[in-house]
Amino acid sequence: MLGYIIRRLLQVIPVLWLVATSTFFLMHAAPGGPFDSERQISAEIQANINARYHLDEPLGKQYLRYLQMLASGDLGPSFRYADRSVNEIIATTFPVSAMVGLIGLFFALSIGLSTGIFAASKLNSWRDYSAMLLALLGISLPSFVVGPLMILLFSIKLGWFSVSGYNRLQDLLLPGLTMGIMYAAFFARLTRGGISEIIRQDFIRTAKAKGLSNTVIMLRHTLKGGLLPATSFLGPAATAMLTGSLVVETIFNLPGLGRFFVQSALNRDYTLVMGCVLFLAVLIVIMNLLVDLAYAFLDPRVTYD
């Protein structure tokens, strides 16, 4: 098992190389560059800047230079935010996004799983249908609708939280909730689906024939298998939530990674884009590994060696 984990983690290296290479060339193939702007700058200054960031070198050379830097753990300077390195930007913005993401994950799982289990235990009844209707609503309502509604209710009407910005930890609660609600809806549907699949199995009939109560049948016999679909979704969902969302961070005016990521792509801030993408790739590899381990925990037929 330990050997398996180490091997999986070592896979990060080729994955990073592939991601770095493809992002590098894609970014450079995209029209425009980091220093294009409406303001006309003289050719001299332009040449100076290009020389400073080695943009005047042939692409292959730039690529090798980038890989070399990467190997030493340096993601380089941001092209757009002068005096800030990519490492530093990620190190200061990721904790904000991660905190929002963790809060979101908490709401997503607690609301999502309990709704899914509730609906599945009342399968095809009006309670099930109303829970699933609610979930559909949660999936369909975009964060730019839910977020402002939250602010309106909790911040302006009730005055519990600040309207925007990040000063205290509790300022992250509403963004977390906003983000969590949509994922909660996905988790609810996946959990209901997973459980209703298990409920049809022969071994649930055996459990009934043993005289077990419905609660024991649900919690002990159904849940482990029924949670597998939600578990698969947990990997990508957690990654997306932890790395921040442009919409949520914009609505709540938070200095999170999500905004920088999207901005960097629009700005052609080559190093920052690459840094964010690589960071995401590492996170995805780790999350996928965690999901696979959770799979083995839930289903004893799954083994790794």
Binding site: F203, T206, A209, K210, G211, H221, K224, G225
Partner: peptide
């Protein structure tokens, strides 16, 4: 429920699917 599995027990056709694979 007090009778099932206690006073009257049942054995099913397909042993491959009648036991819970997760437990």
């Amino acid at each position: 429920r007090k009778i099932r599995g206690n006073k009257i027990a049942m054995i099913f056709q397909d042993p491959m699917t009648s036991l819970n694979p997760y437990l």
